[in-house]
Simulated assay, not measured.
Amino acid sequence: MCGRFTLSAEWGLVRDWFFIELAEQMEKIAPRYNIGPGQNVLAVIAHDGKRRAGFLNWGFQRSLINARAETLAVKPTFRSLLARKRCIIPADGFYEWQAGENNKKQPLRITLTDRPLFSFAALYETYVQPDGAKHHSCVIITTASNSFMSPIHERMPAILRREDETVWLDRSITDADRLLPLLVPGNGGNMRAYPVSTAVGNVRWDAPECIEPATL
């Protein structure tokens, strides 16, 4: 699954790495070290041939924060969003808790060794609240873990290959048979995991110390 991640890079790097052309007041974005469900997350969509960045609330109604890649084309809600409401969520790491001795769980931060930033495949929706205001939210897609992640957790976020991000964001592509093969876990040869403080379990703690390696 994916229940916590980081985007600690400066905005300039994020903008350039993801070729973002349309964004408002993004220079004020601060690095994030402990992003959790229910919070606003940076997302990128394709808009009139250009990449646009904005914020979406992480989680659909009823606290649904993830969508399984295996059922996207089957469940009616996800099937329609897969065809027309796709986005990417920039990140530079994500957390997972690994069970240890005496059922004690150790949080790990997972990063990629071959790139400073990467993207989660995600879906988004917009609905009108009773007061008439529009609410924009998203879910992060997960897939079965690869050989690197499987000792840590059976699920992992669907991390797009850099060359597949343009295809995922292309609104003219609606065929699930072309989109679903992008949601593969890879072999994990470019992944790294290291222990961090158990204090990251408190989602209110969002500081550089969250991503510092912990001594076990």
Rank of each mutant, 00 (worst) to 15 (best):
M1G: 09
C2P: 05
C2I: 07
C2K: 07
T6R: 08
T6Y: 04
T6P: 02
T6K: 03
S8L: 02
S8I: 02
W11R: 12
W17N: 04
I20A: 00
I20N: 01
A23E: 14
I29R: 15
I29T: 13
I29C: 08
N34R: 03
P37D: 13
G38E: 05
G38I: 11
L42N: 01
V44S: 02
V44I: 12
K50W: 12
R51Y: 09
R52L: 11
R52I: 01
G54H: 05
G54P: 02
F55Y: 14
L56H: 04
L56E: 05
L56C: 03
F60M: 09
F60P: 00
E70F: 04
A73I: 08
P76N: 10
L81C: 11
L81D: 07
L82N: 09
A83R: 15
I88P: 00
A91F: 02
A91N: 00
D92R: 06
Y95A: 04
W97Y: 09
W97G: 01
W97T: 03
Q98K: 15
A99R: 15
A99F: 09
N103M: 10
K104H: 14
Q106F: 10
P107Q: 05
I110W: 00
I110E: 01
T111P: 05
T113Q: 03
D114A: 02
P116H: 12
P116Q: 15
F118L: 05
S119C: 13
A122E: 07
Y127V: 08
P130E: 07
G132C: 13
A133R: 15
A144R: 13
N146H: 03
S147L: 12
I152S: 07
R155F: 07
L160S: 07
R162P: 00
E163S: 09
D164F: 08
W168P: 00
L169C: 02
D170R: 14
S172H: 15
T174L: 05
T174D: 10
A176M: 04
A176V: 05
L180N: 10
L182A: 01
L183E: 06
P185K: 05
R192G: 03
A193S: 06
S197Q: 07
S197A: 13
G201Q: 07
W205E: 11
A207C: 01
E209T: 15
E209F: 13
E212I: 14
E212Y: 08
P213A: 14
P213M: 10
T215S: 15
